[in-house]
Design a protein around this nucleic acid. Structure first.
Lengths: 257, 257
DNA sequence: ACACACGGTTCCCCACAGCCGAACGGCTTA
DNA sequence: TAAGCCGTTCGGCTGTGGGGAACCGTGTGT
């Protein structure tokens, strides 16, 4: 699963690929040496060596004892990225509020590369542990965030993403065809919020509301909780209002590009 | 100040340099298109184009409307990096405590590339604004964090860094020679904590204590405040104890490599 | 104490990766 | 309709970046 040459329309730059595969390994392993990287990535030591030198000069990584690890410059990059997407402060405070009010997990996500990426997440005091972490990705078709965003993306882009999905059944409830998905998107547009009814993870339900203006969706806010506390009724009567309110506040404090 | 070929021992890989210069520009500008990048970086559009394609395939950046920006994958990388350095949770909670107790700015930093990099920072309720942000860098010789770390680095590395500095006088108080610096490092080792007496920024003083075991320094904790509230006496009598206590707690909860 | 193994580093050479220029296509503005 | 601006595609020539092998410095086992 490491090396997959997927998208071969047009050439890719090999040495850049190598550089980033090095970074990937360093991220996973949390540090490695020349020889280790060389055999892991199947390149000569000299090749890896000059790459490491280049990355070190760029201060992307640091010598740490007997190997290399990624440098804190990444943290600075992360701060910039965060601020570029939307009004991070507002997003954070609204998501935090949501988590406090409900005691559950609240999240904000956007679409990237046909998947949902989490920009911010708070775990309320009785929040269940989930796999998602800030910066990680989940499928669009199995999450309330993903489906909600999808419902408000430009038609063309929606089409593109819907068609490109592999539709793996993560639970018995997962949507596994483009048709079902289109139906659900329609339903979301009608009621204004999206639901994940144990479609991504058994025993968990989520509600999400979009942050958008007339033409663009920025992303969506969601709350996640165990089905026992998140009954379908409670979602429609109470929780949907809360996420929508949060989404509105973020919307109002966001300059759309 | 953007393109400086500094360190020419050994060859660097050009295309990787280009890729990262693109990333740098995208970080600064928060997004740009092919043509813009091409002239900014003085390369042909086709070159930039294939680089962008490569980076997009790697999901390092995303098409956003009429340009590209860095993707949220960076946030995930940042999380990993944070966790690799030390026990992030403990560092955060201790630094937070410090900031609460004093109401001022508390920080944790490590040495990277001969500079101090900030891993975590909290601004207490009356904390002054400073330039430092998480992931950014400051000189070793003008900050309490830098000098304190320097005092406990392996002799060889200390030497190397001390010699490599440019010693710019940021304020009238800044240490501007290797000799003065060596003296101060000696003083730090004797008393166990380092002081920045308006050496980095006029009107601000800092105290820092190292996090180390017998052979290694991980980094250092510091508090920063206006000289009016941070009198020299108060630093020695009271604040130095507080940073040292925090440093100790972090130390005890850290597995050294 | 020695030699051996293992990691990082250096050197040089050659193939081909990657950079450029030019031409193209799509979209907006006048 | 034409002109400008953008991203994209193409092909060719050149220099760069990848590989192999030899080197060095350090740690390890006997």
């Amino acid at each position: 699963m490491t090396n997959a040459a997927r998208n071969d329309r047009g050439r890719s730059i090999r040495s850049v690929e190598i550089a980033f595969s090095i970074i990937d390994v360093l991220q996973e392993k949390g540090g490695a040496g020349v020889t280790e990287l060389a055999e892991e990535l199947d390149h000569s030591k000299s090749t890896i060596h000059s790459h490491l030198r280049t990355l070190e000069d760029r201060e992307i990584l640091v010598r740490e004892g007997d190997g290399y690890r990624l440098s804190l410059r990444i943290l600075d990059m992360a701060t910039h990225v965060r601020d570029q997407v939307g009004n991070y402060d507002v997003i954070r405070s609204e998501v935090d509020t949501l988590a406090e009010e409900t005691g559950e997990i609240a999240q904000f996500g956007i679409e990237e590369h046909g998947k949902v990426s989490y920009l911010y997440k708070t775990t309320g005091d009785r929040g269940v542990e989930t796999a998602s972490r800030v910066g990680t990705q989940q499928p669009m078709y199995s999450t309330s965030l993903g489906k909600t965003i999808l419902a408000y993306l430009p038609e063309e882009r929606t089409e593109e993403i819907v068609q490109a999905q592999a539709y793996e059944a993560l639970t018995p409830m997962t949507i596994t065809s483009a048709e079902e998905l289109y139906d659900d998107l329609e339903a979301i547009r009608e009621r204004g919020y999206g639901i994940d009814d144990e479609e991504n993870f058994e025993g968990l339900r989520c509600v999400a509301a979009p942050v958008k203006n007339e033409e663009t969706v920025l992303g969506a806010v969601s709350i996640t909780g165990p089905s026992s506390r998140f009954t379908v009724d409670r979602i429609h009567d109470e929780l949907s209002d809360q996420v929508q309110r949060a989404a509105n506040v973020i919307e109002l404090n966001t300059k759309f590009a």
